[in-house]
Design a protein around this nucleic acid. Structure first.
Lengths: 196, 196
DNA sequence: ACTTCTGTCTACCAATTGGTAGAAGCGTGA
DNA sequence: TCACGCTTCTACCAATTGGTAGACAGAAGT
């Protein structure tokens, strides 16, 4: 794998777990067996690296979602929701840093949000459109399609990533509790979305 | 107001917006018209200050929730949810830094989570118990009470605080869109919780 | 008048930060 | 062999970081 790619991967891991402010170029370089000047050779500044990492993460996230959505009837909103939940929970288990990075990038006041928005705009519009027609045809319960999409996003990402809140509630994050969380989430969303 | 309290307030504001790592004691002191040594006089270390701020924030959050819940039938789960939504959205408007700090404190790997958990344990248990009996009596839809509570928390906090995601969706956070978000959220939660 | 306590200050400190300048190693093509 | 471009390095740097040591001011009590 190219050095550039190794840097991106390691940075994603570190940014997504320790945070951007909590990750120094020196520490990153040490982890890579390099000097930080080599990192700055590929990325002109720490912020440029962060932006590249956000792009990388957005791509991976979108690819995962696309892969699942491609095998699903575009009119079947519930199947899409189920697919999204499956993707997010698999990532929570296998690539927690990826979700951590999205969380980091979507912190209030983050300057990379613009980037994310242009990156995701097409997919958001598609999802919104699917929701809208489903709403009109009474196949889904909801008021405003875009705000409903936002609620869905918040719920799914929250349930998948708020592990510290979970701990505070006395539930230790583990494979089993993850599965239980997912099951309750799906039940919750089905009741909220699918007409009886 | 005592200097100690001023430090706590200013720190909450800064920690909740810029983040802990993004806030230096020097910057904090400058904002207060002090030297950082004066801050370290009241709090032995930056981390001690952070812990104190988390305590402060947890207290305020709990007080707000208690105030709303006290005027509501303890058996009326939906009224409690409505109250919680009202509190969180008012805070999102008037004290965004407070929610930001809770978000900061609940970052994966955060070391203050233990603190938060002991601080909130009683209230979590109470809410869970109310949910449980409501579930048994069929007044609320759901499977596992604790996981349902967790889903509710994730949804409400997410919808109220994920402003950058909202922006990425082309919705500028404002008073009007906040009200719309809240309305759609309440509709969403009502469908998900209240039996037809 | 003297001490004591509280609070704020100046003066430092070693370590770390992101970043610059430029040299050295290295393989490739002429 | 030479030149060249790519990559990684050593050597620095000014600024900032959290934190320590201790002086100084003022109020309060005796």
């Amino acid at each position: 794998m190219s050095t550039r790619q190794r840097i991106l991967d390691t940075a994603l891991e570190s940014f997504g777990t320790t945070g951007v402010d909590g990750t120094s170029l020196d520490a990153l370089a040490r982890e890579l067996g390099l000097r930080k000047q080599s990192i700055l050779y590929y990325f002109n500044s720490k912020n440029a690296l962060f932006q590249a990492v956000v792009d990388e993460a957005a791509n991976e996230f979108i690819d995962e979602l696309d892969a699942v959505f491609s095998g699903v009837d575009p009119r079947d909103v519930w199947a899409q929701v189920e697919g999204a939940v499956r993707v997010v929970f698999r990532l929570a288990l296998q690539r927690p840093a990826l979700l951590g990075l999205l969380r980091e990038a979507s912190r209030p006041g983050s300057m990379v949000a613009v980037q994310l928005s242009t990156r995701l705009a097409v997919h958001i519009d598609a999802a919104q459109h699917a929701l809208e027609t489903a709403l009109q045809e009474g196949r889904v319960l909801g008021g405003n399609a875009r705000l409903l999409l936002f609620s869905l996003y918040s719920t799914i990402m929250g349930v998948a990533t708020e592990v510290e809140v979970l701990r505070a509630m006395g539930i230790e994050p583990s494979l089993r509790t993850l599965a239980e969380r997912r099951q309750e989430l799906l039940r919750f969303l089905r009741v909220a979305l699918v007409p009886a």
